[in-house]
């Protein structure tokens, strides 16, 4: 039987192949995220000067909302032609299936975040490049926590009719600490005098969030998927 990481790789590669052919998730998430940043730029940039502290919030709002759009189709695709049951019948650890789906969402969100971060830096004159590694680390940590919780909830809701309504209702209360930590950490980096210690503290909080919720998601995926 294939090992955990081999299965995760196969599932992720399959999802990315389907995405490369349909462009369903990339196009909707990217279009939404770019529109979101553009609309906010008209509201929060006056006479060429952005409202102080707005950039971090807008960056993370765009990431969270577009990430939610990406999560829906992740398991919806498995519902078509009952492919999910085919996956669950494979002689593999079901947590590896979760991990593959999760990695696919993380990769997709990362691609969207690169575009959004560049747009925010340009439109809001945010010095993201000055601390690019820290910004990337915060985004990646937030991304992992958000995707872990979101992928699990998307799996839980796959058999419910009102999943598109329920997903954000369940997702946002749980991921709010991660989003706040992301906003606070990014704000600390975008101040006139960047506060690296504060950014480090929020990054550590995000790391704890990721560790707890990724472990929980891996642990609970199998019972969640059993009818």
């Amino acid at each position: 039987m294939p090992n955990f990481f081999r299965v995760a790789w196969l599932v992720m590669r399959k999802d990315l192949t389907i995405e490369a052919r349909s462009w369903e998730m990339v196009s909707t998430t990217l279009f939404f995220a770019v529109s979101c940043v553009l609309v906010f730029s008209f509201a929060f940039v006056r006479a060429g000067q952005p409202v102080e502290g707005a950039a971090a919030g807008i960056l993370w709002i765009a990431v969270a909302f577009s990430g939610t759009l990406a999560l829906g189709p992740t398991f919806d695709r498995e519902r078509h032609h009952d492919a999910l049951r085919g996956l669950l019948l494979a002689p593999v650890e079901r947590s590896a299936i979760f991990f593959g789906k999760f990695l696919g969402v993380v990769l997709l969100m990362t691609a969207v975040e690169v575009v959004v971060a560049v747009l925010v830096a340009l439109l809001f004159q945010a010095p993201l490049a000055a601390h690019a590694w820290w910004v990337a680390a915060l985004l990646m940590l937030g991304n992992v926590g958000f995707a872990a919780v979101g992928t699990l909830f998307a799996a839980m809701l796959v058999r419910t009719r009102s999943r598109s309504v329920l997903l954000p209702i369940l997702l946002y209360p749980i991921t709010l600490p991660a989003l706040i930590a992301g906003v606070m950490g990014t704000s600390a980096l975008l101040q006139a005098e960047p506060n690296l210690d504060l950014a480090r503290l929020w990054a550590a909080m995000l790391l704890c969030f990721d560790a707890v919720f990724t472990t929980l998601a891996l642990w609970t995926f199998e019972p969640v998927m059993t009818e």
Binding site: L10, K14, T17, I18, H81, D82, A83, R85, L87
Partner: peptide, 26 residues
């Protein structure tokens, strides 16, 4: 198990479908 809904990925080719499930079987 062959269910009524067939459990195939419509966007993948026939070969890709079989290779994917073959991979899952190791």
């Amino acid at each position: 198990f062959l269910p009524h809904d067939l459990q195939l990925y419509a966007e993948l080719t026939a070969r890709e479908n079989l290779e994917f499930f073959g991979g899952l079987h190791g």
